[in-house]
Every structure is written in structure tokens, then in C-alpha cells.
Amino acid sequence: MTPARSRSTRAPVMIRPDRGGWWAMIMLLGFLAVGLAALLFSYFHLLINAEQWPPQGVETPRFVAAAWGGGAMLAATLAVYAGVVQGVRGRRARLKIGLAAGFVLGIAALVVSLLDLGHVPFTAQTNVYGSLFFALAGYIAVLLMAGLVMLALVQFWVWLGFFGPSESIALVNVTLYLAFVAAAWIPVFASLYLAPYVLGGA
């Protein structure tokens, strides 16, 4: 066996770095997605069992504010994505702008969602619909909060000079995570705000 040199296998690929850390994030997101599926399963199981949905005495909440929150979440993801795409090419200023914009938009999304939760015409204790509403919306809110903590830290480290073209896994992972939260919001929104109109006979 000759101690040969091996060729440099591949240039870094931005979206699919295919390294340990990337796979760990994929696993984590898969895990969280199944968690969401379990919540949605609960929602529809109880919806099907109920005679009327939402049950007596509860009005379906208005969805305008929630839609704004979801929009902000999506915008935050896009901003971070745009910044990271630039960042892995070495454009640090744009990276910082993208992350910062994403963070601000994310906070806005969180605030809008929490305000919205405070204004629905029922509580988690009212009945199953209320409980499920807060469980599902709460799931998204908690995921979003965790995402914002991650984003804040990554941002902080970027300001300190870490991460960039030669080490991008943290940047990619935070983008993936935020994209997941924004995507997870869609079925939740559809179930909580729209399904009652279609399936509930309300």
C-alpha cells in the first residue's frame, strides 16, 4: 500500500454539507416533525369525535393576526437564508445584516403570535378546542423561541468573527431550523383557524 495522497474530494456544498452536525439537525427536525404530527393527530382525533367543532360556546378565532405572525416568520427565514448564502461566500457584512434582520422579524413574529394568543375568545381551560389550540400554538411558539435563542447566539458568534466559508455548519443548521418552524406553522394554522370552517360545521 503506497501512502498516496488523496484528491480533495469535494468543494463545500452550502445546502447539504453532509457532515455529522448536519445530519444531527435533520434528525432533530424529523423528531420535532413527528411531535407535531402527534399533536395534529390528537387534534383531529378529538375533532372527529366531537359533534360540533369547535364545541359549544367557543368561537373560531379570527385568523388575520395569526397570518401576520406566520408571514413574519417566513420573512425571518428568508432573511436568514439570504444572509447565510452570502456569508458562506465570505461576505460577512451581508451575513450580519441577514441574521440581524431575521432576528428582528422573528421577534416580531413571536410578539404578534403571543399577542394573538392573549386575545382569543377562550382559554386553554374552556374545553378541548381551547386546550388543543394552546397546545399547538404553544408548540410553535416554543420552537420559535428556541430558534430565536439559537439565532441570537449564532449571530453573537458571527460578530466575534466565527463561522463563514470554511466553517458553516452552524449557519446552515440555524437556517434549516427556522425554515422548519415556518413550515410547521402552516399545518397548525390550517388546522386551528381554517379546519373548523371546512370540517366543523360551525
Binding site: V34, Q125, S131
Partner: peptide, 28 residues
């Protein structure tokens, strides 16, 4: 995930009076 989520649901049912599993609150 379903067990973790289920456990948290039961925990908030116990601690915060949510209803998912008790028939009295419309749960199952």
C-alpha cells in the same frame, strides 16, 4: 415524540386543567 407529547399533554391536564383525555372536558 408521541409519548413525550402525550406525557406533556397529560401533565398540563393535571397541573393546568387543560382537557385532552378526560371525558368531562370533552376529551377522550
Amino acid at each position: 415524540p408521541p409519548l413525550i407529547i402525550g406525557s406533556l399533554m397529560l401533565e398540563v391536564e393535571r397541573k393546568l386543567a387543560f382537557s385532552f383525555f378526560s371525558a368531562t372536558g370533552g376529551g377522550d
